[in-house]
Simulated scan of single mutants.
Amino acid sequence: MATFQRGENLSLEEQEQIMRVINKAEYLDHVEQERIGRLVEKLDNMKKNAIGNGTTQCILCGDEFGLLGASPTYCDDCKKAVCSKCGVDTFNCNKQPLWLCKICAETRELY
């Protein structure tokens, strides 16, 4: 059976250094929580302001698709139609190309 022997107490400088590390970690956690809150708010606003039907119109901006209008591209996540200005061309974890609407792209960024 192993025994634990207590060594010297931590010096005041060591204690202060530990407190600085703990305070910095708490600060970074607070900053990250604020960032996530802003992302959630942005995503909620984007969903609330989406005006198209996702089939004959861009799900986000409502632009009509057709011969004289924009060409629809379908989001790989939600399968809704989006125009080129409301979509994001990106890659998945396997480096395969993905087309996402901005709502799905922001949702992925949150997770």
Rank of each mutant, 00 (worst) to 15 (best):
110 L>F: 02
91 F>N: 10
18 I>W: 03
44 D>W: 10
54 G>R: 01
56 T>D: 07
80 K>P: 02
46 M>F: 11
23 N>D: 14
83 C>W: 00
58 C>H: 01
55 T>E: 10
48 K>P: 08
94 N>R: 13
88 V>C: 06
96 Q>C: 09
76 D>V: 05
2 A>K: 11
16 E>R: 13
86 C>L: 00
71 S>T: 10
22 I>S: 04
35 R>I: 00
17 Q>S: 03
26 E>Y: 02
57 Q>G: 03
54 G>Y: 04
86 C>S: 04
55 T>P: 05
48 K>I: 02
62 G>D: 14
37 G>V: 03
73 T>I: 13
96 Q>I: 13
35 R>D: 01
17 Q>R: 08
77 D>Q: 12
71 S>K: 07
82 V>H: 01
97 P>K: 14
14 E>F: 00
73 T>D: 06
95 K>L: 09
29 D>T: 08
91 F>R: 13
14 E>M: 00
89 D>Y: 13
74 Y>N: 09
82 V>K: 03
91 F>A: 07
102 K>Y: 10
36 I>A: 08
65 F>D: 00
77 D>N: 15
62 G>P: 07
42 K>Q: 10
13 E>F: 00
53 N>C: 13
52 G>P: 03
40 V>R: 13
13 E>P: 03
40 V>Y: 12
63 D>F: 06
66 G>W: 14
1 M>N: 10
59 I>V: 14
76 D>P: 01
101 C>R: 06
45 N>C: 12
93 C>E: 12
53 N>P: 05
76 D>H: 08
27 Y>S: 07
30 H>S: 09
104 C>A: 09
100 L>K: 03
66 G>F: 11
3 T>Y: 02
56 T>R: 07
109 E>A: 13
96 Q>N: 12
39 L>H: 01
87 G>V: 05
36 I>C: 08
70 A>I: 11
72 P>E: 04
15 Q>E: 04
89 D>H: 14
111 Y>C: 13
49 N>F: 09
28 L>A: 07
25 A>I: 02
69 G>W: 08
64 E>S: 03
92 N>V: 12
26 E>L: 11
106 E>L: 15
99 W>V: 05
27 Y>P: 02
7 G>Y: 03
99 W>N: 12
103 I>F: 08
65 F>E: 04
41 E>N: 10
35 R>N: 08
70 A>L: 11
47 K>R: 15
69 G>E: 10
64 E>V: 09
73 T>F: 12
18 I>M: 04
83 C>M: 04
71 S>N: 11
74 Y>E: 10
47 K>P: 05
102 K>M: 15
46 M>H: 14
83 C>E: 02
12 L>E: 11
22 I>A: 07
